[in-house]
């Protein structure tokens, strides 16, 4: 029971308090690039969550049973990026076979997940924090949910912004960054929620 509470707290703190985008600055590129429409933002969030959960499991296994077991820490970056790239490729093939509709909806975003720094950041944070296997998977899933939450919220705001009167020089990227700043301020309100 004790362990279950710990895992639940880890999940909530990953989603809200240490949100990958707004607090840790991971995955800013898709956050700015793919947040024009709620629907695409949500699909992107789903695909990222899926890859993140798998990455968390795969990199934990590789780090524990290969890199640490044979004392090869210098291969960490190279091997993590290969694992992520092949996972994304695998997910792409899997979705293409099982659900062509979803594959079409995600389009170009799927291969781009490889260079999403949120995924690599996740893989690097797991050994740094010393999580167990279950905690790693929950951490990966929570990070994905937090990512989806932030990107969908942003897309909702930007859809409204289309009709707003934004000063010419601030159109596009600048105003998006300022909104993200205000969102980050709002998320700071969660910081006292759990003390870990």
């Amino acid at each position: 029971m004790e362990e279950f509470t710990q895992i639940l707290l880890l999940f909530i703190s990953t989603v809200l308090i240490n949100n990958f985008i707004l607090v840790r600055f991971l995955g800013i590129c898709p956050f700015l690039g793919v947040s024009k429409q709620v629907e695409t933002a949500f699909s992107m969030g789903l695909a990222t969550t899926f890859v993140m959960t798998l990455t968390a499991a795969a990199t934990w296994l590789i780090n524990t049973f290969i890199l640490e077991a044979f004392n090869l820490p210098f291969l960490q970056y190279v091997s993590f990026i290969i694992v992520i790239a092949s996972l994304v490729q695998f997910v792409e093939m899997f979705i293409k076979k099982t659900s062509p509709v979803l594959y079409k909806a995600l389009g170009i975003f799927l291969p781009l997940i490889t260079t999403n720094c949120a995924i690599m950041g996740l893989a690097l944070l797991i050994p740094l924090n010393g999580y167990s296997f279950i905690a790693s998977v929950v951490f990966g899933f929570g990070a994905g949910v937090g990512f989806t939450l932030a990107i969908v919220l942003m897309a909702g705001l930007r859809e409204k912004l289309e009709f707003g009167d934004v000063p010419g020089v601030l159109k596009g990227v600048p105003v998006t960054l300022i909104i993200a700043g205000i969102m980050a301020m709002a998320f700071m309100g969660f910081s006292g929620l759990i003390s870990m």
């Binding site: 707004l22 601030l170 600048p174 980050a184």
Partner: peptide, 20 residues
């Protein structure tokens, strides 16, 4: 606030606006 995440987003947003 300037050294916290929120400050980073807002400063860069204004900076890009000025450069534009």
């Amino acid at each position: 606030i300037m050294v916290l995440p929120a400050g980073a987003f807002i400063t860069l947003g204004i900076l890009v606006g000025i450069m534009n």
